[in-house]
Design a protein around this nucleic acid. Sequence first.
RNA 1: GGGCCGUUAGCUCAACUGGUAGAGCAACUGACUCUUAAUCAGUAGGUCCCGGGUUCGACUCCCUGACGGCCCA
Length: 493
Amino acid sequence: MDKESKLIQVRKEKINELKENGINLYPNDFKPSCSIKELKKIIGKRPDSLGEKGDEFYVAGRMMAVNKMGKSSFIRFKDGSDQLQAYLQKNRLGDETYSLFKKLDIGDFIGVKGPLFQTRTGEWTLLAKEFRLLSKAVRPLPEKFHGLKDPEKRYRRRYLDLIMNEDTRQIFIKRSKIVASMRRFFEEKGFMEVETPMMQPLAGGAEATPFKTWHNALGMELFLRIAPELYLKRLVVGGFEKVFEINRNFRNEGISTRHNPEFTMVEFYQAYADYENLMDLTEEMFESIVKEISGSTAIEYQGQTIDFKKGWQRIPMIESLVKIGGVDPAILDDTESLLNFAQKNNIQITKKDRHGKVLTKLFDILVEPKLIQPTFITGYPIEVSPLSRKSDGNPELTDRFELFIAGREIANGFSEINDPEDQHNRFLMQAQQRDEGNSEAHIMDSEYVEALEYGMPPTAGEGIGIDRFVMLLTDSPSIREVILFPHMKKNVC
RNA sequence: GGGCCGUUAGCUCAACUGGUAGAGCAACUGACUCUUAAUCAGUAGGUCCCGGGUUCGACUCCCUGACGGCCCA
């Protein structure tokens, strides 16, 4: 607790005064008859029933502004739905209640009962016949006009951000609607929602550094999951043919405008589908969600228009390197030339990197930032795709795609390996990469291979980064704007 | 990890070349029974992020550190 400011001391003195007068600062017996939003609906529908002698309502909320004019006052207060003005008169409320009101502060929760009338300017206003304190605020709110701007304070004290900044509220309301819409989409398509372990003995399903933890009773190390993939596919083995999970993944890496150590993904698997079916499904899902949330298939993101209407470009990665990345097709097959090319273009590449990895790194730098409209890149090299099914036509590539929008990766999907021997060998390949110094290479998971040995139907699966998708639909430049409590260093001040 | 920028009253921000730290809102006292960022009169409020250095003198210049933002890796 920081040193108490004078403002808080003054409030505490007033609080003591209220207590001495027998006022309950935290009662819990005031029941609003409707929310402010509902009240405004009534105003829109049947204004004839309103007026000083009309219907009366119980409304509650937080006082956000007060205009005291001697023996009468206007207050503006808001609940979770909307805001409203109330008019308080000394002769109507009585001396006792009115002087109680005068001791209250902006930020306090209050309850008002009365009819609605229109002020001179036509604003519908609650005429207070009863007025009560519902909850006392000890600390002052930020300033009413400029609000709370300091990003550090907005993130650390998100509740203040939500009270003061309507835009912030709207982002998280939208986020909730997006997730609900996605859930509905999957359910309508016959997918079943499941929950798989967040704590795993082996952190598999992606290439990333995990967080470690310890289970006391079992005396064993556990990892926070970096992906749910290997568990979801066990469920497909078990006969759940269409499953999805919306939940957090944890990756022990840096923080940036696009990365938070914990982030939300939807991952889903469908038996008897291939990666092309999933591209179709993704287009359909994005188009329908964007339409539902934004009212149109096109959105504005950071000054550029992005159209989610179905029929997105699908470009093989190699082709994209030539056409978009400007790489000479003559050097594509030669690792040495690619390394030289990378060096000339200041792209950091380790000598140990295999051919497919070099291609992928070049892609990340040369192509990814240029993919503004929704674009599927297909045919990822086998070295960087340890869980993706080998392409029938080319054993160097996999039946895999990634989706890019606004220059960033949004989704990753592929036809799954269901040949246990192939999967085993892929893990061995990864183990070798690990030996060569790639600490993020996938770990051998024999139990998963064993599950495949019982037989998994042909399957395709995909993961979509929800935070990044929400960023697009809320025009947010940073992932912190769409995560309620983004990760920060310990507060020392 | 590197570069740039920031941190001053509860909040939003000023403070010139190094010379007693300011405003608006919020708060407090008073006036005011239709205000709309109400108005009017007055009052109070500061570890200038922490620590060190230079200087007669540091919010200001230098160094270390903390936290945050943006960009890069």
